[in-house]
Design a protein around this nucleic acid. Structure first.
Lengths: 230, 230
DNA sequence: CCAAAAGTGTTTGCGCTACACCCATGC
DNA sequence: GCATGGGTGTAGCGCAAACACTTTTGG
């Protein structure tokens, strides 16, 4: 191909986790280069013979060893020509969800340091990663209301109160417990188990499961997941 | 930058227009290369010193001379390594809307042939442009229901019946005229003019205008545009 | 017995849905 | 005067919103 172009293509992943009523993001400490010791999203350059999707998965694997529950393309950042001080780089950003309670960050092959940060207390970020993160957060908030992705931030079996808190926390809203429960249960996409989880205090609560297959089936029949708010 | 990467970055635009109750797409006939004489989306390679956004606008200008009413990034296609027979190319696709009635396609500088096609009668498309087009169409259909982008497909002043037909046609739904009108008017984002447009037959109909500024203001105050269907 | 969280029903009001008749114009 | 599309009002019903007390457990 006789096109003369000197633009590099990278992928970045915004990995969200949720624990103790806090939304967290996974960041990596840069070990080399101008931005050494700054924190950045998981990511790196795409190889010539891998798809974008393979590239993100590889980076996630190499840099953190994590397995994500949900992954989708978010946006491609290429409108700031100088977003990377090393040269012209565009970044295809992906948006990932993890049940982070089961996940221990590992310092891996590339031996960078990976760490969870509460989005309430973020460090300075390298490149335009703050912008990317804000974009991802908006997407998360929107998507929560029309797709059942909240479940991907919770353990397989979860308490209703945790689901409720997740929605309250991420959307900054107060929700009526009774109406919320009624609404979610009316969808018929979660199932009561016979197990109980426990908080420190109070009456023990049933554990619930998200029925993904049922959800997929209903979706094909025209069902639309949707949570409104007062 | 000592990264060895041989991936080219292109942009493509899916330009939708609407006339005579038909959704149309703007395509370009390829003049050179393996895909000579095949039809393709407007697009081309990004230059080193221009943003992605500038690149799409430049290509739109160069290849068609068109001015679009709406332009947003759609998706980045890079999961088929062989989507371009000339080598590894990823394409950042954009989604554009035009009031096509006022627009006459011009064969321009690059002297390729530009032409509107009804999406009901598309020719074979080059590359993975069929996939891109389908993605764009879904986005259009979704977005119509929660953002007032239908107006960007109509003239500045339009008939209510045209707006209604646009929704019916693009969403393949039947809509009750009275309820549709009531709903739209209740938003307070369109304005009656004192002019009349005319179809061939029947009683003349008032022309309406979309009040974009009012919409923006309302949006800041929490208003959400939303059209449901039976 | 007290504190803490879980679990549960009913009433009210708003908004979507369904539905049919008259009006203005051109020919 | 007839054909064609434009313009309008209402009644019922379903669903979301608002709202408070009882239950179970641990200490």
């Amino acid at each position: 191909m006789n096109i003369n172009q000197n633009i590099k293509v990278a992928v970045d992943a915004i990995v969200f986790g949720y624990s103790e009523n806090q939304l967290n993001v996974l960041l990596i400490k840069q070990k080399y280069g101008v931005l050494k010791n700054k924190w950045a999203l998981v990511g790196g350059f795409v190889k010539d013979n891998e798809t974008l999707f393979e590239a993100v998965n590889r980076e996630l694997q190499e840099e953190t060893g994590i397995t994500v529950n949900y992954l989708e393309q978010l946006f491609t950042f290429g409108d700031d020509i100088q977003r990377d001080p090393r040269g012209r780089v565009i970044s295809v950003a992906y948006f990932a969800l993890v049940n982070s309670t089961k996940f221990n960050v590992r310092a891996d092959s590339d031996a960078e340091e990976a760490q969870w940060f509460s989005i309430a207390a973020l460090p300075d970020l390298a490149f335009d990663h703050k912008l990317i993160l804000e974009t991802a957060l908006k997407r998360l908030q929107n998507k929560l209301t029309y797709q059942p992705i909240g479940f991907d931030l919770l353990p397989k079996e979860f308490l209703f109160s945790d689901l409720e808190n997740l929605y309250c926390t991420l959307l900054n809203k107060e929700i009526d417990r009774r109406n919320f429960r009624k609404k979610i249960l009316s969808f018929g996409i979660i199932e009561e188990t016979d197990k109980f989880g426990s908080k420190k205090n109070g009456r023990p609560a049933k554990l619930f499961k998200f029925k993904k297959l049922k959800y997929n089936k209903l979706t094909k029949e025209g069902f639309v997941f949707d949570i409104y708010f007062a």
